[in-house]
Simulated scan of single mutants.
Amino acid sequence: MTSTAILPTFVPVGGSTVSRIMRVLRTDRLALLGLVLIILVTILALFGPWIAPFPEQGYGETSVENRGLAPSAVHWFGTDQLGRDILSRVIIGTGPALTISLFVVGIAALIGVPLGAIAGYRGGWLDTVLMRVTEIFQAFPPLLLAMVTVAILGPSLTNAGIALAISWWPWYARLVRAEARALRDRPFVEAARATGVPAWRILPRHILRNCLTPILVQATVDIGAVVLAAGSLAFIGLGAQPPSPDWGLMVAEGRGQIFTAWWISAFPGLAIFVTVLGFNLLGDSLRDFFDPRQVKR
């Protein structure tokens, strides 16, 4: 058996991956839009305190004389019922929103990916046990399970992240399990087993390595979904607590004045929409780009 038989299937086709990605961005306007939105959100998350026009108000400092001001040249997004600049709070709130999303997706992947890989590769009773545990968690709607967990741990941004990670990992376990089952009988995996390579080396080198693409696509879409879920928990009082500049909390604080001071809820809601849209657009483009069944552009 030749050595080429054990090479993984992650082989670039038709030029470098970077050049093909650049061609996709030039031809796919939605992919480019998603990337631009994500870059914008990342810049705001990293440099928010220096970009915000009133950073002290972004962190909760009130201004009684500026309460409920409509959007103007001074306060582009207006002010809330405590006189805080909405634009500053939206900008500074980008950091916690992106941080909690990366935390949740990272923890969910750390739990779900190894379990799914082991279950799919080993099969048998171990696969059955791990998948039954996974199905128990999937039996509950993710947001409902997160609400119950936060209610037990106590409302806070950190506890909301833990709760969402607990409800999110089963999707990665099932995704990787399906990929591992498809890969375990591939020639390069069988060749590795035939040459005496132990399972603990086959899993990372041949199974997980070839699962990176679907994991990357799923994680990209999930980051936007977690932003929405974390905002939902904050909206009902189970996420970030006042005076945190959390988008969901800001929407909740302005819902009672939606017809008289619409900007208090509208702009944080728009921030959630733009962030989720950016990650969804990029995730869909990545899926189409890496899917071998799609025609490469």
Rank of each mutant, 00 (worst) to 15 (best):
D127S: 13
I118C: 04
L115P: 01
G124T: 04
W125V: 14
A108T: 03
Y121R: 10
A109C: 15
V113H: 04
L126W: 10
I111S: 08
G116Y: 06
L126Q: 09
L110D: 04
A108P: 06
R122H: 12
L115A: 10
A108E: 01
A109M: 14
L115I: 14
L126Y: 06
M131R: 08
T99Y: 12
S101R: 05
T99C: 09
A117V: 03
D127G: 08
I100W: 07
A119Q: 01
Y121N: 06
G106E: 02
T128M: 13
T99E: 13
S101L: 07
L102G: 12
T128A: 14
G116I: 04
I118V: 15
V105L: 09
L98E: 00
L130A: 11
L110F: 15
V113P: 02
L115Q: 02
L110W: 12
M131H: 09
L102P: 00
G120W: 03
V133F: 15
G120T: 04
L98R: 03
A119C: 07
T134N: 15
V104I: 11
G124D: 00
L110P: 03
P114I: 10
V113M: 12
V105P: 00
L126H: 08
V129T: 14
L126M: 14
F103P: 00
A117W: 00
D127H: 09
I100F: 11
R132D: 07
G116M: 06
L102Q: 07
L102V: 14
W125M: 13
I118G: 02
L98C: 06
P114E: 06
A117F: 05
M131T: 12
S101F: 07
G120F: 04
G112D: 03
